[in-house]
Computed example of a mutant assay.
Amino acid sequence: MPDEALHESNNPETDMQRVAATLQINQTWRKISIHLKTDNSESVSTSALVFTEDGRWPSLNYQ
């Protein structure tokens, strides 16, 4: 994974583990929902936001 794809709070020196996952994003004009599935867990969002800042990668945050 290229360093520029890491979120600023991720430290590439820490011990991280890759996990295979499927992320499904459904969006309409008024709603966005996120469904995340791995071999060990599954979740569906109750809210989601897309943050953008000049010169930075967009960030998708969801609960």
Rank of each mutant, 00 (worst) to 15 (best):
R56N: 13
D39Y: 04
L23H: 01
Q24M: 04
I34G: 04
Q63S: 13
V44G: 04
M1V: 09
V19Y: 02
V19R: 06
K31E: 10
V19I: 15
L49H: 15
D3E: 10
G55K: 07
N61R: 13
W57V: 09
S59A: 12
E13V: 10
A5V: 06
D3C: 02
M16V: 08
F51V: 15
E42L: 02
N10L: 14
E42F: 01
E53F: 09
T38C: 03
L36H: 04
P58Y: 04
E53P: 02
K31D: 13
T38L: 06
A20K: 09
S43G: 08
E42K: 10
S43H: 11
F51K: 11
S43D: 03
S33A: 03
L36Y: 00
W29T: 09
V44M: 08
Q17P: 00
E13C: 11
V50Q: 07
S47P: 00
M1T: 09
Q27D: 05
L6I: 07
A21N: 04
M16G: 13
I25V: 14
L6K: 05
E13Q: 15
S41E: 12
L36A: 02
S47V: 05
P12I: 09
N26I: 06
V50M: 11
T22I: 04
L36F: 01
M1A: 13
G55M: 01
Q27W: 03
D15A: 14
E53T: 12
E53D: 10
E53R: 13
Y62F: 15
E8T: 08
T38V: 08
P12Y: 06
S47H: 11
P58W: 03
P12T: 08
D54A: 09
A21G: 04
V19C: 01
R18K: 13
L60H: 06
S43T: 10
Q24H: 05
S41H: 06
T38I: 11
L60S: 05
Q24T: 13
P12F: 03
I34F: 01
Q27E: 15
H7C: 06
T14N: 13
K37V: 15
D39W: 02
N40E: 14
S59Q: 14
N11R: 07
V19P: 00
V19T: 11
T28R: 02
S43K: 07
M16A: 10
P2C: 04
K37D: 07
N61E: 07
W57C: 07
N26T: 12
I25Y: 01
Y62P: 01
N40Q: 15
T28W: 02
